[in-house]
């Protein structure tokens, strides 16, 4: 029972924090722009080299836990 209450309080804390941070975030509207995507000339994007070169591969093997019974 105590464990369930602690888990429930933990979930409640997390959801409450997310809800309040979303509301706090709504008050911020000023930020630097990351890129200049609004200013790319229409139909000017031309990616004419698209190469994918396979180099090598690695295989990892992990033993499954054995059931002694």
């Amino acid at each position: 029972m105590v464990v369930d209450i602690l888990i429930a309080l933990g979930i409640g804390l997390l959801i409450s924090l997310i809800v309040m941070l979303v509301h706090k975030g709504a008050l911020k509207s000023v930020h630097m722009e990351r890129a200049a995507s609004n200013y790319i000339k229409r139909d000017s994007v031309d990616i004419n080299v698209r190469r994918e070169i396979y180099l090598y591969k690695r295989v990892e093997r992990k033993e499954k836990p054995k059931n002694d019974n």
Binding site: K41, V49, L55, Y56, K57, V59, K62
Partner: peptide, 21 residues
């Protein structure tokens, strides 16, 4: 008996052009 994880490694190249206004 085992679980396997295969990772294939690639080099990817992109080249081209675009214009900004």
């Amino acid at each position: 008996n085992y679980t396997y994880k295969e990772t294939k490694y690639y080099t990817v190249i992109r080249a081209g052009s675009m214009s900004f206004e």
